[in-house]
């Protein structure tokens, strides 16, 4: 069993078996973190380029640590201070990196589909680290890994995703992955932030938080993307907080062993209160740890059997 494509662009394009393979592969990588030397020589001599057109802290550092713990070399490129500012196109930048013999290009871009354009045009493995409001597959995978680790399974669980579904690539990757593994996914938020056709992905929609939380096994709270609120889809942050903010009281509506997740960075006091974010049911810090293990698994699996035809 191995991954079919040279790239990881989204969970929509992975089979259930491929997702399970990545989750299984991540387990021994996580075990490495308990050692005093957290580095293994698996990808020695490989080059991973981190091409980030949008700001990012945790995803970029997580990918960089994942690559380094596999002994690969990493190069960082951000939009400002590079030839992107001079107007170089995405494909030309990709071709340049290919000519420099990069083995992996990890890309974050504000345009949905940017990673697909890159993947079609260059030979290195392209990993989507977030493209517009389309997908963020490794975040989806690390969320699913965390749920699986805490609950033992994903199948049959009720997972509620709260917030700005319209702009959220995290939500979309979670929905694709979780529904493939047999979870019930409910999205909840203001109607202005829920796309009309989201049910086609397999998720259910609920506009009332109290109702959505009933019997929930997992609550994934999304960040209100303040930078994307210029179109005035929310009357006010205070109203959002009152109707959809995750508080200790609201949490009581879910199952007693519910776990709380957040992809970060958090707006404390808006979408989540501090006593929930730091409470006993929160697995937010573990998501960050698991993210490195999952990204190591993705790099490892993409490194093997690359571009070989079915034989």
């Amino acid at each position: 069993m191995r991954l079919k494509n040279k790239d990881l662009l989204g969970l929509e394009y992975l089979s259930k078996e491929e997702i399970e393979l990545i989750l299984k592969t991540a387990v021994p990588f996580k075990e490495l973190f308990t050692r005093s030397i957290k580095k293994v020589p698996t990808l020695r001599g490989k080059t991973v380029v981190l091409l980030f057109y949008e700001p990012s802290t945790r995803t970029r550092i997580s990918f960089e640590l994942a690559a380094k713990r596999l002994s690969a070399d990493t190069v960082n490129i951000s939009a400002s201070g590079s030839s992107v500012e001079k107007g170089e196109s995405l494909i030309d930048t990709g071709k340049t990196l290919e000519a420099m013999k990069a083995d992996f290009v990890v890309i974050r871009h504000s345009m949905s589909g940017a990673s697909h354009v890159l993947a079609r045009n260059i030979n290195p493995s392209v990993i989507n680290a977030g493209d517009g409001s389309h997908e963020h597959p490794t975040q989806g995978l690390l969320d699913i890994f965390t749920i699986n680790e805490k609950k033992g399974t994903v199948k049959g669980l009720k997972v509620v995703i709260i917030g700005d579904i319209a702009h959220s690539r995290v939500a979309r990757s979670n929905i694709w992955g979780l529904t493939k593994l047999g979870a019930e996914v409910v999205v909840c938020g203001p109607s202005t932030l829920i796309p009309r056709d989201i049910e086609k992905t397999g998720a259910k929609v609920c506009y009332n938080l109290d109702f959505a939380l009933k019997n929930a096994d997992v609550v994934n709270v999304l960040r209100i993307q303040l930078e994307r609120q210029k179109t005035k889809r929310l009357p006010s942050l205070r109203e959002y907080n009152l109707l959809f903010g995750m508080t200790k009281e609201k949490l009581k509506l879910a199952k007693p062993d519910v776990i709380i997740m957040h992809p970060g960075p958090m707006n404390r006091g808006i979408e989540i209160t501090s006593n929930v974010a730091d409470g006993a049911q929160s697995v937010i810090d573990e998501q960050v740890t698991n993210g490195i293990a999952v990204r190591m698994a993705v790099l490892y699996l993409l490194a093997g059997g690359k571009s070989s035809p079915e034989s």
Partner: peptide, 18 residues
């Protein structure tokens, strides 16, 4: 598994155990 010298040889990647 992670210390092998043939990781990128064509073929499937073995699943590492504990």
């Amino acid at each position: 598994t992670f210390y092998r010298d043939d990781v990128d040889s064509i073929g499937k990647q073995p699943l590492a155990k504990e």
